[in-house]
Design a protein around this nucleic acid. Structure first.
Lengths: 191, 191
DNA sequence: ATATTATAAGTGAATATTCACTCATTAATT
DNA sequence: AATTAATGAGTGAATATTCACTTATAATAT
């Protein structure tokens, strides 16, 4: 049977979905295989192990997002516009594929500490840098950039997390503006 | 009756510590037993299973915190003082026992959806209520309390999470004020 | 006081279960 | 015919759980 590409895609999509719902450790190869309508062995044609598959999928998705984010943060907009575009991008993509982003948001702590996302593409690092640069340029006025980066990241990430856990119903794209304005207040940004 | 020497305390302390460091699924009974210097069977004198033990410990710790939080939010302070005391309490307790709070912060998504904390003691619900009441009393001016509750919770929770993941070094008790002020800005609180 | 008994808790080897991973076989494609 | 891929029962190591027996403590009786 050689009907390649389509199978892998189905495996990966299923895996992401199950990982997002139940966590990587909780999901078995059997489940992935049966839900994606392929054999258990099929998975091992593409990945060395379940854990490696999970990591590769995680890394891939984070880095795809990281690239988009970097593009926004690199172009020569002013600070509040960069931040606004970033939030908007994130929330738009989140609305488009909640499952994928649940996987990203919730898997973070399930990999060994040695597995690292390239810092140049790690959204956490990108945002922290964004804020540090804005401080240097006097666009915002805060001490302790690490603390404020944490606050901003939490402020932006928690609403989607609440969607995942059903505390917030429906889409959040339309809240991007309000969230951005809240960030700017926290950062003492004066128009 | 009898109340012989008990290793329960030691088992529970060890379990929380290991769960906090490695995650519930990743920790084995063998490890808990050997680290707490008791047998594997001892655990089952007190709990039906590893997973049940993890849940009971999680629930207990969250509810202990929930009670303290409720006490603060119930006494007749004005909104910003309630919020400030709550943040201060949380950060103080976090600094005192980072391990316990790592366990609380990181375990959330490792239980089946049917396991629920009593809403009257669930910190997420308590904070959401706090904000809704403040809106009703015109102490703050926001639409969409769910969204703003999410932002506030994220803003407050992310700094300790960053301590756990070593992005922030040291204690955070001394940041409680700055964090509270940030919350009040987000909520459009006018002195 | 001392002995006796009841009970909760501890022990760890034995057993049951889970689950990632393998591989002999089968099927499709060229 | 040769190659490539898919299959899924089988394997075994890792783990959770059980259980028959032991031990320490507290309660009671003597």
């Amino acid at each position: 049977m050689s009907k390649p590409i389509t199978k892998l895609e189905s495996i990966e999509k299923t895996a992401i979905q199950l990982f997002a719902s139940y966590g990587i450790k909780q999901v078995t190869i059997k489940e992935i295989a049966s839900k994606s309508k392929c054999s258990e062995g099929a998975l091992y044609r593409h990945y060395k192990s379940k854990e490696e598959m999970a990591w590769e999928l995680y890394k891939r998705e984070v880095e795809i997002f990281g690239k988009k984010l970097r593009n926004i943060l690199n172009c020569g907009l002013a600070f509040p516009d960069k931040l606004g575009s970033a939030v908007e991008l994130f929330y738009k993509l989140f609305d488009e594929d909640q499952t994928k982003f649940s996987f990203i948001l919730l898997s973070k702590y399930n990999f060994s500490k040695s597995r690292k996302i390239d810092p140049g593409l790690n959204p956490f690092d990108l945002v922290t840098d964004l804020i540090k640069i804005a401080v240097k340029r006097n666009e915002i006025n805060i001490d302790n950039p690490e603390l404020y980066s944490a606050m901003i990241l939490g402020l932006v990430l928690q609403p989607p997390t609440f969607v995942v856990s059903k505390r917030i119903k429906g889409k959040i794209g339309n809240t991007a503006d309000a969230v951005t304005r809240s960030c700017l207040k926290v950062l003492n940004y004066k128009r």
